[in-house]
């Protein structure tokens, strides 16, 4: 967590979040918990009929991991707005790392805010999700 008296600067890199490899169990649990029951993520027969070699991870699973990255850095009540673009599919076995960097500090609505660029990468370093988040600084 960012302490009240710690200075945040443009260029700061926030602590990474490294995830275990994506398994079918991960996807089954996330389907149930998130409400996204699209069979393309949990049923290999459906995935193959749709032209995919296998099931693949929900984009929202990786976004949820990015949410963990952010709320490990600031309390969630300081998260104002964020958005991501899903650039590539996260596959079974992928080991995802979430990372972020402060790119701007500005005043808005009477608050001091930081903009971060955030992304997920797989074990090959390929960016799968990229986006930005705006948090209020203490």
């Amino acid at each position: 967590m960012v302490e009240q008296n710690i200075v945040v600067n443009v260029g700061d890199i926030i602590p990474e979040l490294k995830l275990p490899p994506v398994t079918r169990t991960t996807l089954a649990l996330f389907a149930g918990a998130s409400g996204d029951h699209n069979p393309i993520h949990i049923d290999i027969d459906f995935a193959r009929k749709a032209g995919m070699p296998d099931v693949f991870a929900h984009g929202m699973l990786s976004m949820a991991w990015l949410g963990r990255l952010l709320t490990a850095w600031v309390p969630q009540s300081q998260l104002r707005t964020w958005s991501v673009r899903f650039l590539g599919i996260t596959h079974l076995g992928d080991r995802v790392t979430c990372s972020g960097q402060v790119v701007e500090i500005f005043e808005e609505n009477g608050e001091r805010r930081a903009k971060l660029e955030i992304q997920t990468r797989n074990q090959e370093g390929e960016v799968k999700i990229a986006g930005e988040a705006v948090v209020c600084l203490p």
């Binding site: 699209n38 069979p39 393309i40 998260l79 104002r80 991501v84 899903f86 986006g131």
Partner: peptide
């Protein structure tokens, strides 16, 4: 059809 969709972007404002 569900087999043809991908998630392109997602954003939240609180």
């Amino acid at each position: 059809s569900l087999g043809k969709i991908l998630h392109g972007e997602q954003g939240y404002t609180y």
